[in-house]
């Protein structure tokens, strides 16, 4: 039986994992390889690295950390953050990443999705959508540039469009829920998951085991992206999965 996936998300800057890491049992909590190995051992189904490097050295540092990670870690991982060209996608995939996640550039240049999925296969092209509830739209508005810039796109129709353009998965973040630990945006996740026939990874808002269950069950997400809940060790992946299993959700244990 196909299982629901639990995916830790790690922020990377200059080849180092940043942001609120509390890993007392790791030698170097900033090393992406060490953290990836840790999460692999814990039972993570995949990993997402969000690169927030701003320096000119950006591309070189991404390629370097991707290579190091892929040499030691044998579960799928996705790299996202500022990716905008076929050349860059090629370099990241060649270095051992399984998927790239495209966000702002997918909105600015939708043909990038089509071109990239034709060359590399849709399975490695994840389109990330950041959405915020919007009364004018009677739905959710898509934002770009790290959630700072509103667009004219409505999230459900944009999700359908990226599917038809060739995206293999959608990484859906609720801007309203992100960072609140008050639960995922179930309505948004469900609306998108029901509108498309590709897997939807839900992101933003995980604060409890029930939140994760709800987004996988009621939200119909294929996977849950989790950041601080794991990084601050509120729960381990095993605890999350054991809970989900008891709740009747298929997981890999």
């Amino acid at each position: 039986m196909l299982t629901k996936r639990i995916i830790p998300c790690l922020d990377v800057k200059d080849g180092r994992v940043v942001k609120g890491m509390h890993f007392i049992d790791l030698k170097d909590a900033g090393d992406p390889v060490e953290l990836a190995e840790y999460y692999d051992k814990e039972g993570a189904d995949e990993l997402v690295f969000l690169d927030i490097t701003a320096s000119l050295e950006r591309r070189r540092t991404i390629v370097e950390f991707v290579k190091r990670t892929a040499s030691k870690v044998f579960i799928p991982f996705t790299v996202g953050g500022g990716i905008g060209s076929i050349e860059e996608i090629k370099e990241i995939l060649r270095s051992g990443a399984d998927k790239v996640s495209i966000n702002t550039q997918a909105v600015k240049n939708p043909s990038l999705i089509t071109e990239a999925s034709k060359i590399f296969g849709s399975q490695c092209i994840v389109v990330a959508i950041d959405a915020k509830r919007d009364e004018d739209m009677k739905g959710w508005r898509v934002y770009i540039n790290g959630g700072t810039t509103p667009t004219n796109l409505e999230a459900i129709s944009w999700a359908k469009e990226v599917e038809s353009l060739g995206a293999g998965e959608i990484l859906l973040t609720s801007i309203d829920a992100d960072g609140t630990q008050q639960g995922y945006d179930i309505a948004l996740t469900r609306a998108v998951a029901e509108a498309v026939n590709i897997p939807v990874i839900a992101s933003g808002g995980a604060g409890s085991l029930e939140h994760i269950r709800d987004v996988l069950k009621d939200g119909k997400a294929s996977a849950a992206l989790i950041a601080s809940l794991l990084h601050y060790k509120k729960y381990t992946i095993r605890e999350i999965k054991e809970y989900l299993k008891e709740e009747g959700i298929p997981v890999r244990l």
Binding site: M1, L2, T3, K4, R5, D45, S122, Q123, G168, E169, N197, I198, P199, S222, A223, R252
Partner: peptide, 13 residues
Amino acid sequence: PNNLPLPHIGWNQ
């Protein structure tokens, strides 16, 4: 068959 999401992505038995 396309009664389930395709591609078939994830951990299966």
